[in-house]
Amino acid sequence: MVNSTPPHSDRKVWISLLAKASSSHLSELWATYDEPPEHSVLRAPEVGSVMVRGRTGATGAAFNLGEMTVTRCSVQLASGETGHGYIQGRDKKKALQAAMIDALLQTAAAPQVQRKIVDPLQARHEEKRARRSAKAAATKVDFFTMVRGEDT
């Protein structure tokens, strides 16, 4: 169903990170990147929806749960690489940035883009997740058994 062998796996990871990043954080990181490259817009940012699905009993037949908003955009760099942005929500600017970054990550500039944009996104995502998990873990119940009368 999903091909996650390289080289897809890296691209899958960065596209997913771009999709989930906060608009403000991505804008901030994008601003630190040199010059936006020359490009043409293949598909202008478009807001739409994706139907989210679940499974009966978590493991059975698929069913439709409800939709979520998604914005997509495609660009082509002057050097030929095509980039796609699929992001959660309705931020067209973010979708365009995501598509450009996806394209740049296929060029010789990839290591720089990785260091300046993808790595910080990854770090932020992991930190957010870890902090939430840490708060959840603090509410974990430690049961202890009271000494029962008949046992003493």
Binding site: M1, V2, H8, K12, I15, K20, V52, H84
Partner: peptide
């Protein structure tokens, strides 16, 4: 909690996470 949502992207030929949502099960 939070779960990622994956979508098959025709132009890519594989599925990527397009976001994450909070759900109750």
């Amino acid at each position: 909690g939070i779960v990622p949502v994956e979508l098959e992207i025709p132009e890519l030929g594989f599925a990527v996470e397009i976001g994450e949502i909070q759900i109750t099960e």
